[in-house]
Write a protein that binds this DNA or RNA. Structure first.
Lengths: 194, 194
DNA sequence: ATCACTTGCTAACGAACGTTAGTATGCTTA
DNA sequence: TAAGCATACTAACGTTCGTTAGCAAGTGAT
């Protein structure tokens, strides 16, 4: 027996918008496109939302929240920096794969945010990247990692992680957990001292 | 003494457009924006170009050409698959760093191409990715590389390479050659049998 | 001196854009 | 039964979009 949860129209709008923003990009998606996909008139959208950009804001900041929330369990890991990094990478991939459409919008369309949202967004991104850099720094300080260019390593690491939204398929044979493990294995193997 | 090469207006248009497309995205860049940056009227652009999309096509297919051209010297490398992969990665980074703006457009805006250009573009991308996969396959067949998921590895590899356009600065302390070397070192270390 | 080419303008086209105002209908709750 | 909320409509607003037509001035080559 299934429990049918009725989604509010507002939620339906945001979900459809996420798909369209991902497929065509924010700027190339019109409110009339969105309305048509929902079977209503464009003007009717405004009974539920304030503006087109509001939808983008919701998507971007909800994803940001999820990345930060997922970090909580990362902080619990204290055995080694390698273990901590693996946990961080797995957590990151889990968030992405839970909603690849929203992730694509998050990664590709944030620049269409207006101020002050843009600045807030970039601030959060800096914070998040800083957490990865800190693990690398701590690992190098303790001798666990080779000395490498911290920023270079962080960028390479995150680029591999963040690309997963482009190819992950829930029906594929790799679970999010396994993807995170493989990526950390791959990228940390060349990094570890032994 | 400097040699001043006068650039044709058409070329100036394409260069400015590249910058704007990179900054704001193709769809969010208007012909009036572009014209204003050049100090002329929007209508005047059409004395030099056929359409907005023509500019995008030029950028995308010129970049594609450069990636394929750079591959020629890769084919000369036959000592080992690891050496070949390193050469491929260096060549790839060199192309990206020679024009990071055009690269950004190439990577992010190709979906705004109309048919048949879109299909042609995707075909070329498949071809190019196939070349990386082949090096991996050959390396695994010869025992040089560990057996891994070929597609997964190729995607991870290319995502690290392709992200460089986002952070590379010509005035930085890393040369394109060194970036390619470091990336191949990092990603291939975990891959090699030893 | 003429021709061709490059470069640019003004004016305007039809289409699409995000959004607002005002109204109507039906459902749920008090 | 009344109130309030969710939902959707038609009509239209002012703006911006990519693009075209037609014209004009300057430059370099023949």
């Amino acid at each position: 027996m299934e429990t049918v949860v009725k989604k509010s129209r507002k939620q339906q709008i945001e979900e459809k918008a996420t798909i369209l923003f991902q497929e065509r990009g924010y700027a190339a998606t019109s409110m009339r496109d969105l309305a048509q996909d929902l079977g209503i008139e464009a003007a009717s959208l405004y009974s539920h939302i304030k503006s087109k950009e509001e939808i983008l804001q919701k998507i971007c900041f909800r994803m940001a929240d999820e990345f930060f929330s997922a970090w909580r369990e990362v902080e619990l890991e204290n055995s080694s920096q390698a273990a901590k990094m693996e946990k961080a990478m797995i957590a990151h991939v889990k968030v992405i794969t839970k909603d690849t459409d929203a992730s694509a919008v998050f990664f590709n369309e944030w620049r269409h945010l207006s101020e002050p949202f843009l600045s807030e967004f970039l601030g959060m991104r800096d914070d998040y990247e800083g957490r990865f850099k800190k693990i690398l720094r701590d690992g190098m300080a303790s001798g666990e990692f080779k000395i490498v260019d911290e920023k270079f390593m962080m960028l390479t690491l995150l680029s591999s992680l963040n690309w997963t939204h482009n190819w992950y398929k829930p029906e594929g044979n790799l679970t999010p957990e396994e993807i995170g493990k493989r990526l950390s294995g791959l990228l940390l193997n060349g990094l570890k001292n032994r």
